[in-house]
Design a protein around this nucleic acid. Structure first.
Length: 575
RNA sequence: GGGCCUGUAGCUCAAUUGGUUAGAGCAGAGCGCUCAUAACGCUUUGGUUGGGGGUUCGAGUCCCUCCGGGCCUACCA
């Protein structure tokens, strides 16, 4: 048995505003959960954190639209997202909130440290203010006519029609995208900038050490580091009400009253603050979370892995590390970033704004979490964007889960019950067929472990499926139904092994399909979830005489009628 | 405009980083089995690797070019 490792895992934190779709889920939280479950199953010490990302203009606007104070809106939406993540069996040790007091304090702490180290600059700049809305407008919340192509709904950052990049002041007849008001003016406002240029070399050197990261991850980082004039300083404050108030550590920040930190400054800090929320909840001392995050307090042996969609990469490879490195304090930096492409939906994109695709709540309303987990993970968009179609979903789930795995459980338990009763039979010896199976399983389990450790998710799923298939092959070649007629002891040995195989499958499959795995374990009437480091031993875990039961159908198949119904239902706009 | 990714069988994806005859699963065809959710197993059909050119003893892989899809481009998050 290898030494136990300590693994810190974070999933990109979902924005508070609205329910996430399956593309969001498979791009960070779900693969992170898979990895966390696997590493726990291997007996490593895991801390798996996620949270809601609550600040920023969209949250304020959504709250206003819902007619609620933003704090109340966020609290409600946090609960909605928490319930959905529970529904998908995302096994976070803590699902925190970026609006937590812990994150407020820590964000202000980091800003103070950065200022102490001369890495903060105060910049007075001009921004568009809407008198009607009573707020400064981010560039993309200003609409107007494009000076280049005449498109009337161009946004302040870019014209969607001609793709030309714009400055809000370029727009003809600019208006607020929120209220439509044209009562806009340019005001001066002061903001804090993080002097990322001063940290460029440090960041570049650090990225250069990450030779094992996916190309998708490093290429994005390097572009930002090297393109044009290189890494630019970044504004880290905003003129908003909802957010972390700008303070320099515990002290007020003269001239910055009424302003908050930019959401992308405080959101990644929540990865750390979330750990403190976790220990605070349990009334445990700070040392218990600091041993995960402070290399001077025990975190030097932690391996930190982040999961995220490709759109999040710049913030995790550059902005957040700039915050950490710039603090001059011994915080843990990320060791590996697993980034994902996008999942498309039936020939187009999933779209939150258009309500196109399947959203987490809808998915759970029609099928159990395991169906979605299996399909999404076994088709994770690792190397390029991938595609969800109902036909593919139906055939994959029916074939893999119902026919290959579910039917294996069914045929073994029903045959066993009818011939030997509901206990593990004790007669018969293992022979060459069993030796061959053990050899196959040992090889495949090693491959499965290697793929899981490398976070090669689709390959791991393929290997797991092959392990399931091996069970059916074994039954076919040993044919206990035939053996039973002439040599019942031989049939008993085959069934004894096959029942043990169900427990083994439960353990191996649990990271992908935790509910089904639990049902298999429950049917085998055992709590033994030991990982099969020794396959022969694992196949004798359930001893002769051990009682079991026949579970209900593991996976109901998706019918053509259901598929067509869902296809129609989720084609268009959500309510 | 710039940068990056990508195009492989009807579908979803591989291919040990330039090395034998490009492989799996699904779908299709055939055979077997009858324990099981009409499930399982075996065999099998199917590819000018988007088009064209080049480098090389050898190219899906490297280079050029054209065509298609996508992402990012720093004040949405």
């Amino acid at each position: 048995m290898r030494a136990m490792a300590r693994i810190l895992i974070t999933s990109a934190i979902p924005y508070i505003n609205g329910i996430k779709h399956l593309g969001n889920l498979v791009g960070s939280q779900l693969p992170a959960d898979l990895y966390a479950r696997f590493m726990r199953a291997r007996n490593h010490e895991v801390l798996f954190l996620c949270a809601t990302d609550e600040h920023g203009t969209p949250a304020e606007l959504a709250a206003a639209k819902a007619g609620k104070p933003v704090a109340e809106y966020c609290a409600e939406m946090w609960q909605v997202q928490k319930d959905l993540s529970d529904g998908f069996r995302l096994s976070f040790d803590k699902f925190g909130r970026s609006s937590s007091p812990q994150n407020h304090a820590l964000t202000q702490h980091f800003a103070g440290r950065l200022a102490d180290n001369g890495l903060i600059e105060e910049v007075t700049e001009k921004q568009v203010y809407s008198n009607t809305d009573g707020r400064f407008l981010p560039d993309r919340y200003i609409e107007g006519t494009c000076p280049n192509c005449g498109y009337e709904r161009a946004r302040g950052d870019q014209c969607e029609n001609c793709t030309k990049q714009l400055d809000p002041t370029d727009l003809i007849e600019p208006r607020s995208a929120i209220s439509g008001s044209t009562d806009l003016e340019v005001r001066e406002t002061k903001h804090l900038y993080l002097k990322q240029r001063s940290l460029r070399q440090d960041l570049s050197d650090w990225i250069d050490t990450k030779t094992d990261w996916p190309i998708l991850t490093t290429s994005i980082a390097k572009k930002w580091l090297n393109d044009g004039d290189g890494l630019q300083d970044r504004g880290i404050t905003r003129d908003l009400d909802w957010g972390v108030p700008v303070k320099r550590g515990d002290e007020p920040w003269p001239g910055m009253e009424g302003k908050v930190f930019y959401v992308w400054f405080d959101a990644p800090i929540e990865y750390i603050a979330c750990a403190k929320e976790w220990t605070d909840d349990a009334g445990r001392p700070d040392a218990d979370w600091e041993r995960w995050w402070r290399t001077d307090k025990g975190a030097d042996d932690v391996r930190y892995v982040q999961f995220m969609g490709k759109d999040n990469v710049p913030f995790h490879t550059l902005s957040f590390p700039a915050t950490i490195i710039g603090s001059g304090e011994p915080w843990k930096l990320v060791d590996y970033i697993k980034s994902f492409n996008y999942l498309n939906y039936d020939g187009g994109q999933f779209s939150t704004s258009q309500g196109r695709g399947v959203f987490m709540d809808q998915a759970l309303s029609i099928l159990p979490a395991d169906y979605w987990r299996w399909w999404l993970l076994s088709h994770a968009p690792e190397n390029s964007d991938s595609e969800f179609t109902w036909e593919n979903f139906q055939s994959s789930v029916n074939k893999d889960l119902a026919d290959v795995l579910g039917n294996f459980v069914s045929r073994v338990t029903k045959f066993a019950r009818s011939k030997f009763g509901e206990t593990v039979p004790q007669a018969g010896e293992f022979g060459p067929d069993e030796t061959a199976l053990i050899e196959t399983l040992t090889t495949r389990i090693h491959a499965y472990e290697a793929h899981m450790e490398a976070m090669e998710i689709r390959k791991a799923a393929g290997e797991l499926r092959a392990i399931w298939v091996a069970g059916n092959e074994y039954l076919q070649s040993t044919a206990p139904w035939t053996a039973f007629k002439t040599d019942p002891d031989r049939a008993a040995a085959i069934i004894r092994l096959s029942l043990n195989l169900i427990r083994l499958y439960s353990v191996l499959s649990a990271p992908f399909i935790p509910d089904a795995a639990a049902r298999m374990l429950s049917a085998m009437n055992t709590l033994d979830t030991r990982w099969p480091d020794d396959v022969p031993a694992a196949l004798t875990a359930l001893p002769p005489g051990h009682e079991f039961s026949v579970p209900d159908v593991m996976f109901q198949k998706i019918t053509d009628e259901q598929r067509e119904d869902w296809q129609a239902r989720f084609a268009g706009i959500r309510d």
